[in-house]
Structure formats: C-alpha cells, structure tokens
C-alpha cells in the first residue's frame, strides 16, 4: 500500500476511532481517499494528510490538542475532516458548508451524494451502535429480541467502562 493511503488510514483511525482493520474491512478506503481527491482536490487532500503526519507522536500529551488546533479547528481543513468523518460513518459525502465554499471556492463535485450502494451498507455508524444499516446486513430472525452487541472500542480516558455490559456475543450463545 502506498504511503498516501497509509497516512489516510492513520488519519481516519484517529478521526473515527475504528481500527485500521475495521476501516479496510469496508473495502472502501481507497474509494474514500479518491472521493476526497475528487471533491476537494489533491492539493487540499495532501495538506490534510501532511497536517496529520505533522502531529506530535501518539502518547504525547499534546497530540489531541494539536489535532483540534491544526486539523479540526483549521479554517481550511476542519470542514473537510468533518465531511470525511461523516463519509466513513454513513457512506455519504455531505456537501461542505456554504461558508467554506465562499472562502475557498465552490468545487464542482461537492454535492451531497452516496459514494456507492455498498458505501451505504458499510457505514460505520451502524457498527458503532451494534445495529446494521436498514435494508442490509440483516442480523437474523429473532436477533432483535436480545440486547444489542455494541462492539467494544479503545476506551477513552474518561469513560472507560461505557459499554462493558454490551460486549461482543453476550446474550446469544449463553
């Protein structure tokens, strides 16, 4: 895999809190990087990737703050990063805010669209809540009668035990 896609995956892991494996499991990583290139252009995409690469290393206490300051809080990159989060979570590219277009110029491909039928199906939103996209990846007859299986994710510092009662596989087998 190219460095560019690796950096893109690194950024996406940080923004979504889904692992590299989970992101690759959608089969959509390259298409999403391509979507960024197509909609906001290669230059802005590269700026975003460079900003990510320039963050202090993981484990450094200032990394989270830097991410907010240089990416999420950047006039140019913030809205793009947010659209990328929404893309991963829903498979839909949401049109950039009006203010962004006013400032950085309208992009011809920037409209709200579903990247592909499978992008809808692979939206991470569903996985995050232990559900499935309406109309796809059905969980099977009767599964709805059991508590949801919300996958565990790397615990944050503040809410370490948020989902411990809803771990994988509880309920069905036992």
């Amino acid at each position: 895999m190219s460095d560019r896609i690796e950096t893109f995956l690194g950024l996406s892991v940080e923004l979504t809190a889904f692992s590299r494996f989970d992101l690759l499991a959608t089969g959509l990583a390259e298409r999403y990087l391509g979507t960024l290139d197509k909609v906001v252009g290669g230059d802005t995409t590269n700026t975003l990737l460079a900003a990510f690469a320039a963050l202090p290393p993981p484990g450094d206490g200032t990394r989270a703050r830097a991410l907010r300051a240089t990416i999420l809080g950047s006039e140019l990159l913030g809205d793009v990063a947010r659209s990328l989060i929404k893309l991963w979570y829903s498979g839909t590219w949401f049109e950039l805010p009006y203010a962004w277009t006013q400032r950085f110029g309208a992009k011809p491909a920037d409209a709200t669209f579903v990247v592909s039928p499978d992008a809808y199906v692979e939206g991470l939103l569903w996985k995050a809540i232990g559900a499935h996209p309406a109309g796809a990846k059905a969980p099977g007859y009767g599964s709805w009668a059991y508590p949801p299986k919300i996958p565990a994710f790397p615990a944050s510092d503040t809410k370490a035990d948020a989902v411990s009662v809803h771990l994988q596989n509880v309920g069905i087998m036992s």
Partner: peptide, 16 residues
C-alpha cells in the same frame, strides 16, 4: 464537534 471515541460513545448514547 465530536470525533473518535467521543463520537462513537455519543452515537451509542444518542441512537441506541
């Protein structure tokens, strides 16, 4: 302005 873990947790709290 949520992203990462807080976003995942936020979605669980809000949708589920």
């Amino acid at each position: 302005n949520l992203h990462g873990r807080e976003l995942r947790q936020g979605l669980i709290d809000r949708v589920s």
